[in-house]
């Protein structure tokens, strides 16, 4: 149960910003892209909650509407914030993997 929850714990902010680094996308395209890259399946209520927050913080900006679909793109500030967050994530991931290696080598993992 706990391991399933841990696997699902992915920051939706990071997922949306990362998806937008691939170019501007509207809501449905974002959902599909995030699903394909991370396996996380957003609903429209969740996605637009995240987009509203990102827009309010100036991390993404809406583009003119095309056929009832409004694309969003990442701002320069958004890209800077994403880079900082990803660098921390990479640092933590690298450290965690190193420590797991050492733990495995010493046979210190519990049953």
């Amino acid at each position: 149960m706990a391991s399933k929850r841990l696997a699902r714990t992915q920051d939706p902010t990071i997922l949306v910003l990362t998806s937008l680094t691939g170019g501007p996308k509207h809501g449905y395209a974002l959902i599909k892209d995030i699903e394909a890259t991370s396996g996380t399946s957003f609903g429209p209520g969740t996605l637009y909650g995240v987009l509203a927050r990102l827009e309010e913080e100036g991390l993404v900006e809406p583009l003119p509407e095309e056929d009832r679909r409004r694309p969003y793109r990442i701002t320069a500030h958004g890209a800077r914030v994403l880079r900082e967050r990803l660098e921390v994530t990479v640092k933590v991931a690298t450290l965690g993997l190193e420590r797991l290696e050492r733990l495995g080598g010493l046979g210190g993992v519990g049953a």
Partner: peptide
């Protein structure tokens, strides 16, 4: 927008 996304989904 949300309505359109819901229709697409």
């Amino acid at each position: 927008e949300v309505r359109t996304v819901a229709d697409d989904l």
